[in-house]
Design a protein around this nucleic acid. Structure first.
Length: 553
RNA sequence: UGACCGAUGGUGUAACGGUAGCACAACAGAUUUUGGUUCUGUUUGUCAAGGUUCGAAUCCUUGUCGGUCAACCA
């Protein structure tokens, strides 16, 4: 718990530091992360997780994980498990694991207490009638004809609701607040509804379930959460949150709101992400193009890079759209320090070294990571037949292209300088290979040739390289803000967001490295094995390309 | 024709009445056996109009613009 005056604080840190200073809650800080188990977590949740756990960590507090499972029809244990996996993978461990459904008994008692205080009533109106009673933001609501039932009648009816005497939708319990409030949420909100549905934890014990507003704040209060942090759209719920806590007379947790994360070229609502999954636009919640935590993990993002991103985007109350490039910056920065360097060629072009015999074989040492000498060296094999990248050769080089072209020289990374002597074409005039000579005295680290070349390119030994598949990903959407465009957001999906390269060639180490590595394929980008990759069929996902300093016109 | 929240470079975010700073992006240069990394430098900003004050991004007023709210979702 260090409070450094010179560091700038976000508004939540200011609130907490002020609470600490005034001794509120005896200096205790308790936050919570409250997902509903009805979908997978996404990068926006990661921001919230980092915020809640980060704040507790910074100020010596604790964080609970609480599943907000008050709607059994959309929730499932599959989601509970994935959420826990994702939080742990991000690097956080919660102090307590709770479920709002743990509190159904207490919540039920709270409802009875409100009825007894004349602050809640059973309403027989239909959903349409209730909606009509609510009025509109500019027109005050009108009271339900059932609003003034006696306490005894409300108690009896509510008990009958609980006992399953009524069908779904037949009756609801409403809080008696103020039908004329300018805040729509205060116009006698529904707090309990009948759902004869099986709950993933309480089974068939209940057929009435509390609404969000009647569960969230009370759950915070039961746990004695001090700082209940949520996103901006809940700001209108705060008066209700406080009203229930005041009327039920329980621990005064307080709600604070911050702006949710928006990322350009993607969507960030569980409902929309679910559509992409269900309608087959992506391969699943963990498709590497998805902004889900599981998708980013499969794509090759590191936990550290996501935490760093969550810090860099900042915490404030204004709407924001973060450039996807910032996420890419964060992952490149992390991967640059830890990724093993390997050589791979995505679009192979055969090169025959003319002044080397067919039996020539040499081992050449190569650094595993120039940013980290402790990563050591591995050997690459070299022979008279290699593959280079097609993009590294131009028959008629444009201005500023300083790789290989007829007559030019480049260095093969960690190996020798070669000179392009001739091109090989098939019967139809298509380029099928190159003939190059190598300079024996130009060996990497022992170069006595005195030659200076403008470029260094990657390569693999054609005699022992491994074949594999590479999946290249691009942004999922063609427009920056798909949900703000006309029509269906799915019509803006980028059809070319996945490109499969099935004839990539890699150096032998790729076949023998232990699983689960983060790689940089030299000059190409950062890659990781896909979860479907096996010894028999290697498959790599491109996490992100390297920054390209060579801007082609 | 309501209520609430917000407005600082292209994008984010600081400055808490006293020099508008930082990061990403962009651009230029240096270094480089990855056109990567690293390093240096440059461009770009306080929504508007009034007011308070010696002094306003900051306080006040009005306006403008953006967001949110009318699920038996969370």
């Amino acid at each position: 718990m260090s409070i450094d005056k010179s560091e700038s604080l976000n508004f939540l840190e200011e609130i907490i530091e002020n609470d600490l200073k005034t001794g509120k809650h005896g200096g205790r800080v308790l936050t919570r992360f409250p997902p509903e188990p009805n979908g997978y977590l996404h990068i926006g949740h990661a921001k919230s997780i980092c915020l809640n756990f980060g704040l507790a960590d910074k100020y010596g507090g604790m964080t609970n994980l609480r599943f907000d499972d008050t709607n059994p029809v959309t929730e499932d244990v599959e989601y509970v498990d994935s959420i826990k996996d994702d939080i742990r993978w991000l690097g956080f461990e919660w102090d307590n694991e709770f479920f709002a459904s743990d509190y159904f008994e207490q919540l039920h008692q709270f409802a009875i207490k409100l009825i007894n205080k004349g602050l809640a009533y059973v309403d027989d109106s239909t959903p349409e009638e209730i909606a009509a009673q609510k009025g509109s933001p500019t027109v005050p609501g009108e009271e339900s004809p059932y609003r003034n039932r006696t306490v005894e009648e409300n108690l009896r009816l509510f008990a009958e609701m609980k006992d399953g005497k009524y069908k779904d939708g037949e009756k609801v319990l409403r809080a008696k607040v103020d039908m004329a409030s300018p805040n729509m949420l205060m116009r006698d909100p529904v707090i309990y509804r009948i759902k004869h549905a099986h709950h993933h934890r309480t089974g068939d014990k209940w057929c009435i379930y509390p609404m969000y507003d009647f569960a969230h704040g009370q759950s915070d209060s039961i746990e004695q959460v001090t700082h209940s942090i949520c996103t901006l759209e809940f700001i209108h719920h705060r008066p209700l949150y406080n009203w229930f806590i005041e009327k039920i007379e329980i621990f005064p947790s307080q709600q604070y709101e911050f702006a949710r994360l928006n990322l350009n070229y993607t969507v960030m609502s569980k409902r929309k992400l679910l559509q992409l999954v269900n309608e087959g636009y992506v391969a699943g919640w963990d498709d590497p193009r998805m902004p889900t935590i599981s998708g980013l993990r499969r794509r090759g993002y590191t936990p550290a890079s996501i935490r760093d991103f969550a810090t860099r985007v900042g915490i404030a109350k204004r709407e924001n759209v973060i450039d996807f490039g910032l996420l890419e910056f964060c992952v490149r920065e992390d991967l640059n320090k830890i990724a093993l360097r390997r050589m791979a060629v995505l679009n192979p072009l055969k090169v025959t070294i003319t002044n080397l015999t067919d039996t020539f074989h040499e081992l050449l040492p190569a650094e595993n990571n120039p940013e980290d000498p402790s990563a050591g060296l591995r050997n690459m094999t070299f022979s008279n037949e290699i593959y280079i990248e097609q993009d590294d050769f131009m028959l008629n080089p444009t201005d500023g292209f300083f790789r290989l072209s007829p007559g030019s020289m480049v260095r093969l990374k960690n190996a020798y300088i070669i000179k392009c002597e001739d091109v090989v074409k098939d019967g139809e005039g298509n380029l099928t290979g190159l003939k190059c000579s190598y300079v024996p005295e130009s060996k990497s680290g022992q170069d006595t040739s005195g030659l200076k070349v403008k470029s260094v390119i990657h390569w693999v030994n054609a005699k022992d390289c491994v074949d594999f598949e590479v999946r290249l990903y691009d942004r999922l959407f063609l427009v920056e803000n798909p949900q703000n465009e006309e029509g269906d957001f799915k019509s803006y999906i980028n059809k070319d967001s996945l490109k499969i390269v099935d004839n990539a060639k890699g150096e032998q180490a790729l076949a023998t490295d232990e699983a689960g590595q983060y790689y940089q394929f030299m000059r190409l980008g950062y890659f990781c094995p896909d979860k479907s990759s096996s010894k028999d069929k290697l498959i790599f996902n491109r996490t992100v390309s390297l920054k390209d300093g060579f801007k082609k016109k």
